[in-house]
């Protein structure tokens, strides 16, 4: 354990955890959009910046989702400088995704009204945090979607920007991991539809042979059977009926 202080509070944090993690464990709120504990830290949204002073006296701004706690660290999460940065970041987000409820709510909380920057259209609520792509790669192991192009042209897409791409198994993890609701998933009449900011896919669902519910995309079931080396017939019954 290492001793640190956050906003004047003395805290014991396990070695190796990030400042953000330590703050969360102690109910200290640091805003973030791209952080997701299921995947490796990325540091793209910059909202979780905090001011630190090391035991040696070095002061600077760091990304709390990446910076690890260390003995004698002093952290300030909400100084005037931090507030100024966050406000501008939120203003930039609001111009990028004016139609996102999550961003609008965040702007409200931080007193950002917007209007100074020209709002964009066509980003469809996507802030390019890559939570979806990182989850698909690191958790699911499929890498069906990725960030393509670079800079201001960057987009979250399937390979070649095609609808109904080969690789996606339809698990929907991307939609669960999306912080702004840019990826949606809808199961209806035996079909699952996943909508990304620029592409969409439809999947046939598997019907449980006991209860008759559509419980998972056929493609996902096949993928799980293949990777776990079990026969596809093992998955004829849904998890609920199996219990």
């Amino acid at each position: 354990m290492v001793k640190i202080t956050i906003n004047g509070r003395n805290i014991n944090a396990p070695e190796g955890v990030t400042v953000l993690h330590a703050a969360r464990e102690n109910n200290i709120n640091i805003p973030t959009l791209c952080e997701n504990e299921a995947v490796a830290p990325y540091g793209a949204c910059r909202l979780c910046l905090v001011e630190i002073k090391t035991a040696k006296g070095r002061q600077r701004l760091v990304t709390s989702c990446l910076y690890q706690v260390e003995e004698g660290l002093t952290v300030q999460t909400n100084t005037e400088r931090i507030q100024k940065i966050r406000k501008m970041l939120i203003e930039l987000l609001l111009a990028r995704c004016p139609d996102s409820d999550v961003i609008q709510q965040m702007a409200k909380e931080h007193g950002v009204t917007g209007g100074r920057l020209t709002p964009q259209t066509g980003n469809n609520k996507c802030i390019l945090c890559a939570n979806c792509a990182r989850t698909c790669e690191e958790v699911v192991g499929v890498s069906a979607i990725s960030l393509s192009k670079r800079g201001v042209e960057r987009e979250l897409t399937t390979p070649f920007g095609e609808d109904n791409s080969d690789d996606c198994i339809g698990c929907g993890s991307c939609s669960y991991s999306c912080p702004t609701g840019a990826i949606t998933m809808e199961d209806k009449n035996g079909t699952r539809k996943i909508t990304w900011p620029h592409n969409e896919m439809k999947f046939k669902m598997k019907k449980c042979s006991v209860c008759g519910q559509f419980w998972a995309p056929v493609k996902q079931v096949e993928y799980v059977a293949k990777t776990s080396g079990t026969p596809v017939t093992d998955y004829d019954i849904c998890p609920n009926c199996r219990e």
Binding site: C45, A95, L147, K149, G151, V152, R154
Partner: peptide
């Protein structure tokens, strides 16, 4: 710089976009 920004982090990508505009 806007054309060369990798696009990973928000302030560089979005900030340069608006600065250019």
């Amino acid at each position: 710089l806007e054309g060369e920004s990798c696009g990973k982090c928000l302030p560089c990508r979005e900030g340069l976009r608006h600065m250019k505009a």
